[in-house]
């Protein structure tokens, strides 16, 4: 067994207990502040953007953290669903929830196709195959006329919810998206803690053994892949709804890299880690220019002022630090500190 699995396992072990004790009160605090946020002067669209990425990272973690599969192609589901949602909202004027369902359906079907091919190989090949197939999806979106090429889809209308609740106001959208994200998060928590989730854990820990006990592990992995792709597509559709555009950035492999980073920073195989990771990485990307100016002022090194243009480089450095010395992520380390000896 590899050290990787050991570390993942230890952190996922503890999290359920933590959740039940202190974290109930913590979740209430977070929930209340989310519900009140628009009234205390926080810009709702930024929170929504973070929520979409948080959901994306949680869906991704369903695979890497709880099944042990590294998909390097999740941008295809996230960004692709955004395009599908945007296209139907723009050209057909359908209700928002139908658009979201279409986006999720797209993610599920694409997830089935990519997943069926990728599970034919294991380990590092799985990652390379998902990456390559997602790149193919990227090129297809780049060339198909309806996506608007390099410009992407702009001005996607939010439409009406159920045909009669207009989503024009940020506030209505805020509560709608918040509700959907919360439900999706609860669904992921349940999947992880279901009889099915137990088998996924078994596959992550020792796949040959799970096979020898009579489980068709490829089928379990495929279902996990489709589920994860669908939730990622949900996140992508919601993001297109909130921001009103869909671009190639969201389909490109660097987006797959971002979601890996969010999950890694927060803690692979923890339930709350990816959320925390998403908050940190999105905030960092938004604020990095200011941080650069601050650093330039403190240290007197002019170069820091250009930090705003170097998001990928900063991302790369965080990747390196995380892999070398921070593999359990924030939540993983937190739970270890709180429960020493485990």
């Amino acid at each position: 067994m590899s050290a990787f699995e050991k570390e993942l396992g230890n952190s996922s072990k503890n999290i359920s207990k933590i959740l039940k004790s202190k974290s109930v009160s913590w979740s209430l605090v977070v929930l209340t502040s989310l519900l009140l946020a628009p009234f205390i002067g926080v810009y709702p669209v930024l929170i929504l953007k973070i929520l979409c990425f948080a959901l994306f990272a949680c869906s991704f973690n369903l695979l890497i953290g709880f099944t042990g599969l590294l998909s390097f192609g999740h941008a295809a589901f996230f960004g692709g669903a955004g395009y599908i949602f945007g296209y139907f909202m723009k050209s057909w004027g359908i209700p928002a929830e139908i658009g979201i369902i279409l986006g999720v359906g797209f993610g599920a079907i694409l997830g089935y196709v990519i997943g069926s091919l990728a599970i034919k190989r294991q380990g590092i090949y799985f990652a390379m195959i998902t990456l390559a197939l997602a790149q193919m999806v990227y090129f297809i979106f780049l060339q198909t006329p309806f996506t608007g090429g390099e410009d992407g889809l702009q001005g996607i209308p939010r439409g009406k919810l159920f045909g009669f609740i207009p989503l024009d106001s940020d506030l209505v959208t805020y509560y709608f998206v918040l509700g959907v994200v919360l439900l999706a998060f609860l669904a992921i928590v349940r999947i992880v803690n279901s009889p099915y989730g137990q088998i996924l854990r078994a596959i992550k820990e020792n796949e040959p053994r799970a096979v020898s006990l009579g489980y068709d592990t490829n089928r379990f992995k495929l279902i996990a892949f489709v589920t994860s792709a669908s939730f990622s597509a949900l996140a992508g559709s919601l993001k297109a709804l909130v921001l009103g555009f869909a671009t190639l950035t969201d389909v490109h492999w660097t987006m797959s890299g971002s979601v890996i980073l969010m999950t890694l920073v927060g803690g692979l195989g923890t339930l709350t880690g990816p959320i925390l990771g998403a908050v940190l990485i999105v905030m960092l990307e938004n604020k990095i220019g200011e941080i650069g100016f601050f650093l330039a002022e403190v240290t007197g090194i002019q170069w820091f002022e250009t930090l705003g243009q170097s998001v990928p480089m900063v991302t790369g450095i965080i990747f390196i630090i995380c892999v070398l010395s921070f593999r359990q992520g924030i939540v993983g380390i937190f739970t270890r500190v709180c429960r020493p000896g485990r």
Binding site: Y196, I199, R201, E205
Partner: peptide
């Protein structure tokens, strides 16, 4: 390795319950 001893045996018993795909 990272499951309890009881959970290990339960994984094996679980198949006959027929709920292994119940998400």
């Amino acid at each position: 390795p990272n499951m309890t001893v009881l959970e290990n045996v339960r994984i094996a018993l679980q198949r006959k319950l027929g709920t292994s795909y119940h998400l």
